[in-house]
């Protein structure tokens, strides 16, 4: 555990060093969130009755999404890992006394958390003080907030586990680039990064909600603003846990297979 913590500190310090980058990133995300809200506002004003969630729930969703972007961003896969697989540097990593799956998993986790830790507070702080209904409203209840925190963590774990699966699949293909492109665009759409899942037509939404992608950011962001019923929440959390188990076991199996393949081939 200590070595993971050390890694996290290192990443966080590195993030701080690039002060301008951090500020620029926050400003970008803030502008992005703001523009998104303007779009939904325009739609809301044209046809309020067609809105699947309340307007203020939508804005909360958008701000939380921007604040925690680094936790769920599908594009944020680690080039270093891809490179090490491609150029064979992975052989070094195999020499370390730590399971490769665990190492990469914790590394990606640390990477995402440290980035988010640096960026979420200012965005949340500003968004909280924005006038109703444009800012983040308070969570519906204490229970909702606790569930939000829990599902946020679960969602992050599912995201990382999914990325791990992609890294693992890289071993089996010649071109990781293709895999990466296909999967990231899929994640973007199905996880609710393009538009929140409730905005999809009902039939499509029903299918989407069972997929692992919905277990990423979707659950936490919607629970916070109270746009899920109790049964929906129960089901969603259960699905998160199930997907987490499936994805991690699939990923580590793949990694073990890959390790064997590398040792046999000698890099």
């Amino acid at each position: 555990m200590r070595k993971y913590l050390a890694f996290f500190r290192l990443r966080f310090t590195m993030g701080l060093q690039y002060r301008t980058a951090a500020i620029a990133g926050m400003t970008t995300q803030f502008a992005w969130g703001f523009m998104q809200i303007m779009i939904y506002k325009a739609f809301y004003e044209t046809q309020p009755d067609a809105f699947p969630m309340t307007f203020s729930a939508t804005t909360s969703y958008i701000w939380l999404q921007q604040a925690f972007l680094a936790l769920f961003d599908a594009w944020m896969m680690e080039t270093e890992i891809f490179d090490s697989i491609l150029n064979g540097n992975i052989a070094y990593e195999l020499c370390r006394p730590i399971r490769i799956y665990n190492m990469w998993f914790s590394r990606s986790l640390a990477n995402r958390i440290s980035r988010a830790a640096l960026r979420c507070l200012p965005i949340l702080l500003i968004a909280v003080f924005l006038p109703y209904p444009y800012g983040i409203s308070a969570p519906v209840s204490v229970i909702h907030f606790m569930l939000f925190s829990m599902t946020l963590v679960l969602g992050l774990l599912v995201t990382v586990a999914f990325c791990m699966l992609i890294y693992g699949l890289t071993f089996l293909t010649i071109s990781p680039q293709g895999l990466r492109i296909m999967f990231t665009s899929m994640v973007e759409l199905f996880a609710g990064a393009v538009i929140p899942l409730p905005f999809f037509p009902e039939k499509v939404q029903k299918i989407m909600e069972i997929l692992p992608f919905a277990a990423m950011q979707n659950v936490a962001l919607r629970i916070y603003s109270g746009s899920m019923s109790a049964t929906e929440m129960e089901k969603a959390v259960l699905l998160q846990v199930i997907w987490l188990i499936i994805l991690t076991s699939g990923g580590s199996l793949l990694c073990r297979y890959a390790e064997k393949k590398i040792t046999v081939q000698g890099g």
Partner: peptide, 8 residues
């Protein structure tokens, strides 16, 4: 770590 925070 501290120096980095300060430099921020």
């Amino acid at each position: 770590f501290k120096a980095a925070c300060k430099a921020f």
